[in-house]
């Protein structure tokens, strides 16, 4: 994987626009101000991912959906336990003990983020992108992330990590969004941006 700094910056900007729209749509939904950090676009080995981003042994809630349209891939949300409750509360307006209800609320939240994220990127690139209904899995981060890349037949030592983090009322929501493109998609995006 070799991209110039300019290409990675352009890609980061595309993701920034997508994430910005996503943050706005959650803000509207919950009537609270949600911000998004500058996205991270890096090529990392699994080892670096586990030491610099999140340890492979952390238990997480994973919500994953397939991206369909001109550029295929997956959109993966990784939510640690504590953040999961906070997100559910944000959606439901008050704390709840009903696990099924919380799971459904967080799943719906990620659905909204996915689609506004993809809608904004699609607009920018003049293509149509949609996500399929999400699959939810509780597992170790290492198992989740490697399975997500391998489900797209990506077996390389190094992976392109495209990640967004959201904040709410100065508190980190610790929900990471990973965009996992099919092979060749990044080249296609870079090309369509004309750089």
């Amino acid at each position: 994987m070799k991209y110039t700094k300019l290409q990675l910056d352009a890609l980061k900007e595309v993701i920034n626009i997508g994430g910005g729209h996503a943050a706005t749509s959650i803000s509207k939904l919950v009537a609270k101000k949600i911000n998004m950090d500058v996205p991270e676009v890096r090529i990392l080995s699994y080892h670096e991912l586990y030491t610099e981003v999140l340890a492979d042994s952390v238990e997480v809630h994973a919500v994953i959906s397939r991206i369909i349209g001109k550029y295929g891939g997956e959109i993966l949300f990784v939510v640690p336990d504590g953040a999961f409750n906070k997100l559910a509360e944000l959606m439901l307006g008050s704390p709840h003990n009903n696990e099924a209800l919380k799971t459904s609320a967080v799943s719906e939240l990620t659905n909204i983020i996915s689609n506004s994220f993809l809608g904004a990127i699609g607009n920018l690139l003049a293509v149509q992108l949609q996500s399929t209904l999400p699959v939810i899995q509780d597992d170790y981060f290492g198992a989740v992330i490697s399975s997500a890349y391998m489900a797209l037949d990506q077996y390389d030592e190094q992976i392109m990590v495209i990640r967004n983090e959201f904040t709410y009322a100065k508190e980190r929501l610790e929900m990471s969004l990973f965009l996992i493109p099919e092979t060749g998609v990044i080249d296609g995006i870079v090309k369509s941006l004309g750089i």
């Binding site: 994953i64 699959v135 899995q137 198992a143 399975s147 997500a148 489900a151 797209l152």
Partner: peptide, 16 residues
């Protein structure tokens, strides 16, 4: 040997 995400991009030989 688990198969976590079944997106069926998979070959006829079964999942990875």
């Amino acid at each position: 040997g688990a198969n976590m995400f079944n997106f069926s991009t998979l070959s006829e030989n079964g999942d990875v």
